[in-house]
Computed example of a mutant assay.
Amino acid sequence: MIDIAGAVAVEAIEPQSRDAGVAAHYGDPMREQRTLATGVGLVDRSNRGVLAVPGAERASWLHSITTQHLADLRAGQGTELLVLSPHGHVEYHAQVAEDGTTTWLDTEPGAAADLLTFLEKMRFLTRVDPRDASAEWAVLTLVGPRATELFDLKPPQVRAVPGAKFAAGSVPPLPTTEYDVRVLPEGGLARRGRLGIDLIVPRDSIDDVIRRLDVPLAGLWAYEAMRVAARVPRLGLETDHRTIPAEIDLIGPAVHLDKGCYRGQETVARVHNLGRPPRRLVLLHLDGIATDQPPAPGTAVTAADGRAVGFVGTAVRHFELGMIALAVLKRNVPDDAVLRIGESTAAIDLG
């Protein structure tokens, strides 16, 4: 954790949180949110796992075992990928950055070791040498409209998702989402992403990076509020053991629909062609009358008759929107349904 005056660790507030090891806030979470929404702030996300994948065949190898089109991955390019189970359920989600000699994958806190174990099992005779680099490298993220004043990176390029039963060969043989990546002079990478600019930097240079950037620090609570408002799902919060990519809007960012066979591909194709995933990701507004405490991840969402129709992933207090939550609901829940989450009434945001 970036150890400065006023930093309050996540684990000091939530001892069992998956986000232990970084600051929840630096004294004023709402002010920090406003900074990220209107200016620029730096968020410590150094609890994320970082894997380094060097080797001459790294691009074609990752292409063959993940959901993304990576066969021609080149230096200066980033994207997202998933690893699925044989039945198409989401097992791992990683952000990708390529520097010309190594493909870097950063993933959820605590997930790097398991992802590395999977990758090592899939090596066979391929010329790749994946390793866990989390002890040496850290992820920091610049968030806010002024972030591009510090790093002039192109906006993400997101390709359209084809309709059901599209013609073979009609999807470009490129990553479905491309993020601009730049090598930093002091070492490390800057990658433009969906929520900001991620910096993958040596851990021993974090203090130098903070001094050079000279922007306010914001805690993970502020970052999570921006993520929820932007409807960006997070593995382990907006997912469970049954989650498939189409349920949480990861087809566009992380899944290429015409790249050939990979584990779980049959389920992805079948659900896409039928067009009816069993569940969907939604943004909920909670009334906050009975309680101002956001519900815990996994809290049931119920219909007016008491039936469970889904679960809460991440709930936050947003500086403008009030209490909001990302939730995964059954597909047949009407958009205008009156829902309950514990003591709170909730409504689906249709925006």
Score class of each variant (00 low, 15 high):
1 M>E: 15
3 D>H: 11
3 D>W: 01
6 G>V: 03
8 V>I: 06
12 A>K: 07
13 I>F: 06
18 R>G: 07
19 D>L: 11
29 P>H: 09
32 E>V: 04
35 T>S: 02
37 A>C: 13
39 G>A: 11
40 V>A: 08
42 L>D: 07
47 N>T: 07
49 G>L: 02
53 V>G: 12
55 G>K: 01
56 A>V: 13
57 E>T: 02
60 S>R: 10
62 L>F: 05
66 T>I: 08
69 H>Q: 12
79 T>S: 15
83 V>I: 12
84 L>V: 05
89 H>G: 07
89 H>Q: 15
93 H>N: 14
94 A>M: 12
98 E>A: 13
99 D>F: 00
100 G>Q: 09
102 T>C: 11
105 L>N: 08
107 T>K: 03
109 P>F: 04
110 G>E: 13
111 A>L: 02
114 D>M: 13
114 D>G: 15
116 L>C: 14
117 T>I: 00
125 L>E: 15
131 R>V: 11
136 E>P: 03
149 E>S: 10
149 E>L: 09
154 K>G: 08
154 K>P: 03
156 P>E: 15
156 P>W: 00
158 V>I: 14
160 A>W: 01
164 A>G: 13
174 L>V: 06
174 L>P: 05
179 Y>T: 09
180 D>F: 04
186 E>G: 15
191 R>K: 10
192 R>Y: 01
192 R>P: 08
194 R>S: 09
198 D>V: 03
202 P>A: 02
207 D>K: 11
209 V>P: 05
209 V>T: 14
211 R>K: 15
216 P>D: 04
216 P>C: 07
219 G>E: 02
220 L>G: 02
230 A>M: 04
232 V>S: 10
233 P>I: 05
237 L>E: 10
242 R>A: 14
248 I>K: 02
249 D>S: 04
249 D>W: 00
251 I>D: 09
262 Y>R: 06
262 Y>I: 02
268 V>Y: 03
268 V>P: 03
270 R>M: 07
270 R>P: 06
271 V>S: 05
272 H>S: 11
273 N>K: 01
282 V>L: 11
301 V>H: 06
301 V>G: 12
303 A>K: 00
305 D>P: 10
308 A>F: 04
309 V>A: 09
309 V>I: 14
310 G>S: 10
311 F>G: 12
314 T>I: 14
316 V>Y: 03
317 R>H: 04
326 L>A: 10
329 L>T: 09
330 K>F: 00
331 R>C: 02
333 V>I: 07
343 E>P: 10
343 E>A: 15
349 D>S: 09
349 D>C: 12
350 L>P: 01
350 L>Y: 00
